[in-house]
Structures are given as structure tokens and as C-alpha cells.
Amino acid sequence: MAKIIAIHSYKGGTGKTLLSLNLAALYANRGKNVCLFDLDFRAPSLQSILKAKSTEYWINDYLNGVCDIKKILVDVSKTYAKRGSLLVGFANPSTEAIREMSAKDRKWEMKALGRLLSLKNSLLNDMHFDYIIFDTSPGLQYSSINAIVSADLVLVVSGMDISDIKGTQRMIDELYDLFEKKTGLLMNKVFANFLTTKGHRQELAKKLVNNSSLPLVDMVPCFCDILRSGGTVVFSNENPDHPFVKILDRVATTIDTL
């Protein structure tokens, strides 16, 4: 079923971009047509990770009403998708663009929401994409809330830090629930010793589920290999047998059932 997935978190550095990109590549490798958007306008990163050339138009231009959505999509299928297609909408990483985006007023944000909402028609219905994935900025700010409102499903990523868990809980109660969004919790960078045995995993899962009203989608341990890659690798493609990819494959399947 075609859907829009927003990947969000309370704090920064939880692994949203890595998860968004790898999830997008994973769905594409399943033969799906996927569109990935960098909506973290304060710290755009997808263009650097994918080593993509500078484009004429950015997602910023689409939201500004300067161009059609087709103009901003960059097809990276040849490099990053074995079967389906993977198209990316990059955010403009220039300092000037970041400054401009952070100075937008409420009326602009309202129009941007309208443009994000219209992607459901233009991309899912007209262009027949199977998935749209929004890599959002952390916390409660316009760009991330606009993405959440426009999405069918929110995958909220949290680390094990107590401030992160408490903040995530607040967002569940005061943001996702208010917008009646289907939501899944993905615990990331979990201390590996917590997940060594099935008993350990169940104990931690029980603790997390008791603390939050969200369906716990999965728990991803902290992998040194990922840290070592320095954020330059699409793991789903380069290390298909890595445990991270296997967990993500499970996550992708669970998302489809939400």
C-alpha cells in the first residue's frame, strides 16, 4: 500500500538520516518506487552522503512555489537501487538557503504545508510512487510538524538517553496523538549488551512499552561498523548481510503492517 513515512525524533543525532536513507534503499531493492526527501533544512545532509552533484532546483524551491515537484527529484537508482527506483529531493545546503529557510513566516509555513500535503496526489497517485520518506529535522519546529501532518505514518527514533525517552513520550502525547497519526517507536543505538539474549530483548521491550503508549517497532543496537563508515555508506547495498540491514528489513516489513 502506498504511503508517506515521516522519520522524526525529539533530539538530534538519533540516526534519522541513516535510517531514512537505508529504509528508502531497502524498499527500492524490494522492487518498489521510492521518493526520499531531505526536510532537515537547518542541517541538510543527503546530498553529501549520496555525493550527488549540485542540482538546479531543491526541495526549498518546490516549497517556495518556484517549481514543479518533478524538477527537484534526482534519480539515484543506478547507483543505489538494484531493482526498483530511488529518487531524492535534496535540501539546499548553502548557508544562505539555511538562513532563508529559518526566517520564513507563518503564512509561508502554511503554504508549505499545503505543498507537502499535495505530494500525496502528485507522487503517490499521479506518478505511482509506492513510498515517500521524509527525513525531518528533530524536535518541534515548523518543518518537522509540517512533515508529520503530511505523513500517513510517523516512525519516531529515540536513543536510550533518559532525556530523549521523556521528550519522545511528550511528543507522543502532545503531538502525534493530537494529529491522530499512526506511529511506531524505533529505539536506536541501544547498548549492545541489552540485546544479547532473547530474554534481555524482551525485558527491555517490556520496559519501553510500559513507559510509552506506542507500538515498539524494533530495537537497533549501536554498531561500530556504522560509526566507522563515517556516514558515507548506504548499508542496505554495500553490506546486505550486516545485522543492521537484517533488522531494518524487519522494520520495513513491520511498517507495512502499521
Binding site: 507563518r106 503564512k107 509555513e109 502554511m110 499545503g114 500535503l117 501532518v149 493530537l178
Partner: peptide, 25 residues
């Protein structure tokens, strides 16, 4: 200004928020 942005949507009572989001869509 009276702008129907996400912050306004958040501040609306539940029953009106549902209606307002539907119009936005």
C-alpha cells in the same frame, strides 16, 4: 495573523482540528 498553520492546528480543540486538517488536505 489568523493563519491556519500547524501551530494553529495544534492549538485548536480536537473536534475542530480534525475538520481543519481535512480542509487542508
Amino acid at each position: 495573523p489568523d493563519v491556519l498553520d500547524v501551530m494553529t492546528l495544534l492549538s485548536l480543540p480536537d473536534h475542530l482540528r480534525k475538520t481543519a486538517i481535512t480542509i487542508c488536505k
